[in-house]
Amino acid sequence: MRIEPLHTAANVAAVVAWGAILGALYMVFQYVPMERTMGNVQRIFYFHVPSAMVSFLAFFICFLASVAYLITRRRGLDIAAAAAAEIGVVFCSVVLITGPIWAKPIWGIWWTWDARLTTTLVLWLIYVAYLMLRAYLPEGARRANLAAVVGILGFLDVPIVYMSIRWWRTQHPAPVIMGGKGSGLAPDMALTFRVCMVAILCLFVALLLRRIVVELLQDEVDHLYREADVAPPERG
């Protein structure tokens, strides 16, 4: 019933994402000039930062869907929360992989326990645990309830984690490294960044909607099996 419009939206987002990613690749590797102090490796920035923003957005969506699920008990919201967490973990992994690649040549270290990095890592751990919990529970309303509780608890934890690491940092000063990411981007760099942001955002929306559609279709197929009085095949 409501699968059709979602499917269409997923397709539109996918097409836009396609175009935007091609454009972003061109701009990052051809159009935008090399950054003077950091060199070519700075180009990671155009994928690293949008991925970080999108992963935070994904976890926020997981939180909202979890709250809404506990209020309405709609299966669709359970699916949305799970899909957002899955895709959020993917983008968060991208952040955690590209981060050290960028950091090593610039800061001389792969990793530092500063508030932003640490919070991202803790966030990744929380949502991997969330996905693991879902994997270890039998499907059904029970799983949806339990996962929603963890989805809410995990997200509420984020600001407290960030704050606690900031406090911790004041006790253990680390080399000052961050120059503030967006501070004084040149106009062509800012434009490239914006295109990348749109591309990654569209990719996220396309993946999220596609994931939700797949899950809804599976429900639908099982429903049809039931109507036809046939046992649905086992699914791994």
Binding site: L125, I126, D157, S164
Partner: peptide, 17 residues
């Protein structure tokens, strides 16, 4: 296994504090 995997990331602030 599930309990520590869920618990430890969430209690990072407690451990730090």
């Amino acid at each position: 296994v599930m309990l520590p995997v869920l618990l430890f990331p969430i209690i990072v602030p407690v451990i730090v504090g």
